[in-house]
Design a protein around this nucleic acid. Sequence first.
DNA 1: CAAATATATGAAGAGGTATTCATATATTGA
DNA 2: TCAATATATGAATACCTCTTCATATATTTG
Lengths: 115, 115
Amino acid sequence: MARGGKSKSKNLQTGEIQNLAEMFRLLGDPTRLRIVLACSTRDLSVGDIAETLELSQSLVSHHLRLLRAGRILRAERHGRHVFYGAADDHIRHVIADMVEHVAEAHSHTRAKTAA
Amino acid sequence: MARGGKSKSKNLQTGEIQNLAEMFRLLGDPTRLRIVLACSTRDLSVGDIAETLELSQSLVSHHLRLLRAGRILRAERHGRHVFYGAADDHIRHVIADMVEHVAEAHSHTRAKTAA
DNA sequence: CAAATATATGAAGAGGTATTCATATATTGA
DNA sequence: TCAATATATGAATACCTCTTCATATATTTG
């Protein structure tokens, strides 16, 4: 308990901050975020992701590698297809939260791009 | 709420995805994340942030500008000092969530490295 | 085996970004 | 006013990352 519980302490170790930043960084690219959102609810094959999002197979594969390495997505092979999905419920929860928050933020954010 | 409630819909518009990714991107740099964490609970002056985190005043100021522009932090002037803090409760909530999640993730970090 | 399909990977270029250094702009007080 | 303090900003640069193109590696089927 020297490191604080789950109440209000925000004192993270250097390594944890690096981890957290790395996760944010991975979600911080629009293309990667679209990929994560696309297969966070149901698993999708690489080809399906590429087709759905209208991205090249190569680009999708490159991004999937990073997302796998960052433990955001996990891969599962079925025959010649590889299906990708959220790494765990924790990730699913985080994503759902963010989506919800962004929706809320948007509802009372008047300024910005609209015109 | 125009489309989709706060239930399970994850269908974001292109603009919303851009916004969300931009927010993640801003939090995705370790230095910036440290700055945000430092002043997300209580407001801090630029000098205090620099001293606390052992960063140059210039670097802190550059990052603060980005965080302000991204509506993650807000600035408030008092005399010759400028205090920075979380832009709103929404931001505070998001950060608290992520911190909590990263802590949990860390506790059972041994997922499958399977390929 | 070879062919067809699905995915992964290496190299390379274009563009972006974090950091530093120097300097500019407030703000207060004598 | 000038000096001192606090913050902001511009330019330069070294580094990193996204994307594309070409090619390699699996996997199933004939």
